[in-house]
Amino acid sequence: METSIIQSTGLSKRYGKFTAVNELSLHVPAGSIYGFVGPNGAGKTTTMRMLTTLTRPSAGEAWVAGHSIHHDRREVRRAIGYMPDDFGVYDDLRVWEYLDFFAACYDIPESERRPLVHDLLELVELSHRRDDMVDQLSRGMKQRLSLARTLAHDPRVLILDEPASGLDPRARVEIRELLVSLAGMGKTVFFSTHILADVSEICSHIGIIEAGQLIIQGSMNEIRAELMSHREVIVTLADAASASRAHGILRNAPTVLEAELLPPRGGRHSVLVKSDGDDEAIGALNQRLVNAEVLVLGFTEETRNLEAMFMRITKGIVT
């Protein structure tokens, strides 16, 4: 059993009669990248604010790095690097001053702050903007600067609320890469999003929340296995002849439920294969095509899977 670095039982938040978060029981394993997915208004931000001790829960308990959010609030804050969704930056400060200020607020001595700020800026690739004013940065850069700020006190857990929202595609990819490299440094990344592509690309674990309730959580593989009866693979081929050959081979292969010749798109021919096999069986399908000397241009698992899965398990209740 993995050890949970964030754990909650019966965590709830009510505003009058409205229940924003209802009896949430989260388990975020140490070292994971946990995608917290849900539609807008599902209670993602409220949950994160409770975990960071910024909002007092109406009921329930949670522990971050072993510290209770009720009793060891300072220790919890010490363990967390938090980036809210709508964070502000001080426009009148320079980039390095901004980081220096927060490092000082974390009691880091002055002599250690200079190399720290240097390292942080290098990590988020903002070293060249060190002396610029914060308000001259683009939104993506501000997001990276904010991420650097969350790292100033070397926290074990990063709680990031919609870290990629409002960013252009390039900046989104950069943030995503940063999250992966942070997980590589041993940090647990717990982030919320409603962009499913982010989740399927980088997450090891996922939790889906809707209308304040956690619908499902677990590792990506577990959830895939649990929810999808089959996997879908798209095989791309050079011409119509090889497409029909491939179709013939794959249709009769073991573990294949169905193979469908897709209409050609952009001059490419492709076959959609539905299989209930594991990774090995999927690999064997590719091997079979190669052995039959069919020229394969692409062999990819369909990532829209996740969207289908998401649509199936959420009921579309948006509060």
């Binding site: 190399p115 390292d119 070397d154």
Partner: peptide
């Protein structure tokens, strides 16, 4: 990244009891 881990204040100095 050496400074990142070195500069982090040790847990004792930020213990809630020592906060005041």
């Amino acid at each position: 990244m050496k400074a990142l881990s070195e500069a982090a204040p040790d847990a004792a100095s930020l213990n809630p009891a020592r906060h005041r």
